[in-house]
Design a protein around this nucleic acid. Sequence first.
DNA 1: GATTAGCACTCTCACTCTAAGAGTGCCAAC
DNA 2: GTTGGCACTCTTAGAGTGAGAGTGCTAATC
Lengths: 350, 350
Amino acid sequence: MQLDNRKKEVLHAIVDDYVSTNEPVGSKSLIERHSFNVSSATLRNDMAELEHLGLIEKPHTSAGRIPSDKGYREYVNSLMTIEELTPREQLEIEKRIDSSVDEVTDLIKNATHTLSETTGFVSLAMSPRLKKSFLKQLKILMIEPGKALVVMVLSAGVVKDKVVRIPNFLNDEQIMKISGAIEKHLTGKPLDEITLVTVESAGKNTDVPEPLLKQVLYEAYAAIKQADELNIYLEGEHRMLSLPDFSSLGRARDLLGTLSDSGMVAGYVNEMENAARELGNDDSYMIRIGQEITLEGLDDCSFITATYNLTDSVSGNIGVIGPKRMLYSKVISQIDFVKKKLNEEMKRFT
Amino acid sequence: MQLDNRKKEVLHAIVDDYVSTNEPVGSKSLIERHSFNVSSATLRNDMAELEHLGLIEKPHTSAGRIPSDKGYREYVNSLMTIEELTPREQLEIEKRIDSSVDEVTDLIKNATHTLSETTGFVSLAMSPRLKKSFLKQLKILMIEPGKALVVMVLSAGVVKDKVVRIPNFLNDEQIMKISGAIEKHLTGKPLDEITLVTVESAGKNTDVPEPLLKQVLYEAYAAIKQADELNIYLEGEHRMLSLPDFSSLGRARDLLGTLSDSGMVAGYVNEMENAARELGNDDSYMIRIGQEITLEGLDDCSFITATYNLTDSVSGNIGVIGPKRMLYSKVISQIDFVKKKLNEEMKRFT
DNA sequence: GATTAGCACTCTCACTCTAAGAGTGCCAAC
DNA sequence: GTTGGCACTCTTAGAGTGAGAGTGCTAATC
């Protein structure tokens, strides 16, 4: 995209004005609001050119221009400058991040909440991808005949558990043996290297009768697999209803309908993460604008995420879904700052 | 409320027609749609009377009538007849209730989901009130120096845990001793009879140095208290946006805004439950209509809940928030049937 | 070649006006 | 107590209008 300097400034100004006023921007009001040292006719020529390039568009013939998805993309990639949050804003966020919680999950939920409150948009976070974390402890506790609890402590400081069914006849001692054997053989192994075969061979030399043993091992395996399932936390969906961008009930309905399927949103966040890795993206954030988002009903939204790290190899995402018409530089710094604080807090757990 | 038979029929018909058409009901259309053997002028007199009694109202001078909150209340209390679901509808619900889950929480979430899908409204469930359930097991597992996991098995078949901080110097053996002592003394005690004093006296004769011991006991106590905290599961908020009753964005915003504060909703459900108990209500459901609901933004809603039982003394609520203008008899049977299925499934856990 | 002033043209938006339609309340008669 | 009749009220949809904002084009100017 080769744009001369003035055209860049014009696009920049159009995005800024449109974001702040939510009105299509005309050549005259551009002149009024900014100090271009040319006439409105000249800007009209520039604007025609920008429209020709697909960076801005008109809602109708006699309206001003609004940025297209491509225009926002250009703005985000090349034009905007990201400013640090003011100390005051930073303090506001720091106050909200609760550093007294004892579980990583609570910390993440807390950060999600903070992000929704500060941006005023929908915020979301994925639970950490635990595939690369390894087992530090695994205990099977008898709850009652036929039922046991598998408790796992993972290297990333995360505790997971799952209630499982076991054969009725098994006693405490037998369960302890199996539990001990699994722990002994699998401690230190990353979750994604643990398969049903690994678990079965770990329990091999326990003197528990074969079919019973096998069932317990299977359940233990299922518990381990469940531990690395991804969760997503979404918050602040209702905030979208207060934005003029979603004053049409239809759009709002489509948007909230899509967001209610949290599994789908989680899948999309993963897709973004993977795409960024493949591209070797070195930005601290990922961004998708308007139609770039393949989820239904998010055409008028932008989706911004960042990656937090629990350990070097265990990470997750945190981000925001807001209207396309947002103050990108501000929102990006907010996400970035929350992520930074989250990373700091997470050191306590590992 | 003494109404002669025809007036009752008129109110019944107005509610029915308004619920199905979402249009104010006029005297003429009442005659057309129902076989009253009188003229529209007579109905107009009856309607004037019903309006005088505050049971129906006019949106404006020349519109038909719509039921008032009081009218709906009369309808629900005295006029409607609740019909059983058809076998087909029952099957639909049975298919959705997943009987393979191993944890009570999952079962409840599943029932909530089912209820939202079948009614098309917002559904909600409260976690069981565990105050009256008693401790069956309590184990403290060392996770790493300074950190432990308190695992509790409760009489109602529920497993709870909490990560807690403990003094760094404590070793596995000391923790086991404390854990054993607590379990020995508190097993069988209902949660609401366990106080900090009880826990402290339970751990008294452990030979662990005083200040360290005290901290662990306090954390164990905190874990027990956290176990009986109430959770609420809300689902299907976005469905309200598809209803004509919330086609005004303002109303929709207020409603979803209120629902986003799940703690507040949970408090309200508790209040309903307590009020019903005090009144010795023997209905299988509780219902609040329009302004009877003290939550902001729910003026156009009705709130219906039922009580499920995990054990004789451990119960929770499940219900629906929908528009006032709903098919009460149908929705009530749906809630009732889901509750019944839920109760049946819960027997597996206790 | 870039910039500008001027102007005709287009489209939206807010307003007003109007007629149709639905429903009511009341009165006098049955 | 019930009914037919009728004047009255209020909403809604549609049509028409003028103001306002903005554009694109042309011809002149720097």
